[in-house]
Design a protein around this nucleic acid. Sequence first.
DNA 1: TTGTAGGCGTTATCAG
DNA 2: CTGATAACGCCTACAA
Lengths: 341, 341
Amino acid sequence: MTPQIPTLDDVAREADVSTATVSRCLNEKQKVSPKTLDRVMKTVEKLGYTPNFNARAMAAKRSFTIGAIIPTMENAIFARGLQAFQETLHELGYNLLVSSSAYQPKLEAEQVRELVARGADGLLLIGYERDQKIYDYLDGRNIPTVLAWASSPDAAHAFVGFDNQGAMRSLADTVIEMGHRRIGVISGATNGNDRAAGRLAGIKESMRAHGFDANDLNIIETQYEIERGGEAFEQLMKATPKPTVVMCGNDVLATGAISKARELGLDIPNDVSVTGFDDIELASHVWPPLTTVHVPHREMGRVAAHVLIDQIEKRSTKVGHELNVSIVMRDSLKRIKVQDP
Amino acid sequence: MTPQIPTLDDVAREADVSTATVSRCLNEKQKVSPKTLDRVMKTVEKLGYTPNFNARAMAAKRSFTIGAIIPTMENAIFARGLQAFQETLHELGYNLLVSSSAYQPKLEAEQVRELVARGADGLLLIGYERDQKIYDYLDGRNIPTVLAWASSPDAAHAFVGFDNQGAMRSLADTVIEMGHRRIGVISGATNGNDRAAGRLAGIKESMRAHGFDANDLNIIETQYEIERGGEAFEQLMKATPKPTVVMCGNDVLATGAISKARELGLDIPNDVSVTGFDDIELASHVWPPLTTVHVPHREMGRVAAHVLIDQIEKRSTKVGHELNVSIVMRDSLKRIKVQDP
DNA sequence: TTGTAGGCGTTATCAG
DNA sequence: CTGATAACGCCTACAA
């Protein structure tokens, strides 16, 4: 009744060799004579044998699996980078296990344990800000880890990312130089999110550098969802006088803002400018196209994979890769005549 | 040098009980006296013990893991449903492993083996159209499977989905009744994709039902990407006379079409109407808002989880759940005066 | 309630 | 080049 799933033993018996030989045929072909190899592979085929992953991982103490924990799968922020990460991993002979933490630190900690318990050879985490216990846990078990989407402030861990604060500061510089003084900000929740916090800090830094008071910024923190971006935008527009520009923590929020603007009868960029961050595919397809910070997602994923596997295989030292970002000027941001705040 | 990862043995020794008792403390608390339970749990905590997943799965022949293979993670089509799927799974005590097949049947087959090899207790697959060998493989190993995002034409497998063809036909009926006769279609690649094929068939069916020739449809098949949607739209607009409406296989393609229309100086819906499918979050936030088919993504995910776990735990019979979809009328589709094709 | 011991499917170390 | 055989870490009858 219960169908029998073929095991190494079955193959060995059928091919009339030992399990060791079958195992070699699967993993180190060069150590087996062509004749037996052929015979074994044929019975593998015939029986439809698939190696049991758990058994293999346990015996080899190696799973060829990498775990990644991202804050959300619900929008495209991480999709491109992760895709590249997984493609590169595949080329290197590794598989990827993804789980999402829904931006909840506790859940992330759980997932870390989960992935490690599953035998992940290495981990990709987003950003650097998290409970030190997690790092201790990882270090204690010697699990190579790479942090992405941010540049780590210390040298404790390998990272592949970019300077969120610097990038946003540079965008804010541009905004200010284009004449804007009343700046509204829709930021992602900064609590426990170093990327969001860094981006916000970048705007404040720019304000101060230009001799303005960062407290004059009208800031709303909210979740990274289109709908939330729209709500925040509406809120900001209630101020008198209105901001002349709304800088958003990412393109998703900016999309919501643009959508809500139309609903409110406001013309972008003539009534108010909007900026984003990330340059996801959507950014150039909303109307008006979004001025934003371009992040090299695919490169980040690719490099992260190499950095991680290097650590695993060659025990290379922990390195940090800071990638360059650039500002993409599109129509959602407009130069205006300087006006008093 | 090499840090020791604590095992069941370590805990047992430290707590001065047998490994069996520790195991019980972790899995069947009720079978252990409160005193020892407490003591054991404390040493578990103290040692920072995490059960080895692979060993557990192997010994118990149960992994409490469900695998899901989706065609892509790059856009939001599957995100919401999968999120709900995983949340429900979590409530039921299961974990989710996701992998993406990039719309490649071969890759999907590989991933199926991969997930099964990893000990998945059950699988979620998208749609029903795939090599029979995959089903044989799954059946042979008795791996419960649920098909989602489509309704299966036969009763061979459990499914939770909706009638793609019927839904699109109903939308096409509406379009035709609103006066449109020259219909352009941007379809997802139908080869190996039953959802895309069904949706396209729905349009054709509607045409015939209204006494028109389905061959008059101007159809372009392309990949589900914003950019591709734009290209296809531009192509369609080269026809003379132009279509009065472009029906898109999903909201992603429609978003591309709308974006391209603006670029071409065409006003939607006055110059040409556009429709989508799926009702992803974006659909109501593009301009003009998209007339589309609303799919109950979260419900689908939730129900799929229950159906699958029921199969696993109670060996319930395979059931099919066909969910209702509805047409959401928004501004991208406009009534016009009937004109000769 | 607790302990003993066999087994889950592989890999890897040794001999041969 | 091939074959025994001991791990790997945990679960689960079965016994006590």
